[in-house]
Amino acid sequence: MGDFLKREKNKEYTRNKLIEVAMELFQKKEYQKTTIEEIAKLAGISKPTFFAYFDSKEQLLYAFDLKQIHTFELYMKEQLSPQGDLLLELREAIVQMAINLHTTHLLTQNMMHLVTINENYKRLLEDTFSIFRKVIKEVVEYGQQHDIIVMEVGAEDVAKDLSTIYLGTLVNWVITSGQGSLGNQMRSTLDHSLQRISMKWRNVNEASH
């Protein structure tokens, strides 16, 4: 049993190491120019060992995306409390996820290009956005049940709107070659939508300006 746990721990370490070094390389150079050989070498393993963990660079990138979206999901589940500032936590969790996923505008540009040329990655990314929308919908429904969010707002519509805002902000950030803080841009655009669904949010933000 001890040997089994040790092997599993080593596997998890190697998997996380591959994700970590791959993201380092993707940030420094174009995604397409990063090779599996480079990733494996930097992680201290052989190329055949790489394929024991991931089938492709796309799957590795997806693993990183999925890790961030699950962190977002777990965090928001912990924030479901009538006493907390639910929408503020939602906004900041989305902002933090964006910052963690999109460390450079070049990486984001590469990811967007990959969606257009790789159907497998596109399908995988659609799965992460399904989780993203599901979490937002659950947060909004909870907010409606506790009078944090106005009842007439459709939770599904809010989830779609915030998902669109998220993507639109990323596109704008890439188009402007990463000018300005992605976090600040994301925070500002999300505010406009959140003001529409919560009088409490509107009053708090008006008082701070």
Rank of each mutant, 00 (worst) to 15 (best):
G2I: 05
F4I: 13
L5P: 02
T14G: 05
L18F: 05
L18M: 05
M23W: 14
M23N: 15
Q27C: 14
Q27P: 06
I39E: 01
L42D: 12
I45D: 01
S46I: 03
F50P: 05
D55Y: 08
E73Q: 09
L74K: 12
Q79I: 00
P82I: 02
P82Y: 04
D85C: 07
I94L: 13
V95W: 02
N100P: 01
L101I: 12
H102K: 14
L107D: 01
N110Q: 04
M112F: 15
H113N: 14
H113S: 12
L114C: 07
V115P: 06
V115F: 13
T116S: 12
I117T: 10
E119G: 14
Y121N: 07
Y121F: 15
K122Q: 14
L124D: 00
F129D: 04
F129M: 11
S130Y: 15
S130F: 12
I131S: 09
I131V: 14
F132D: 00
V140T: 08
Y142E: 02
G143V: 00
I149N: 08
V150A: 15
L162T: 04
T164I: 11
G168P: 00
L170I: 08
V174A: 01
Q179A: 10
Q179V: 11
L190R: 03
H192R: 13
S193C: 07
S193V: 04
L194W: 12
N203I: 12
H209G: 11
H209S: 12
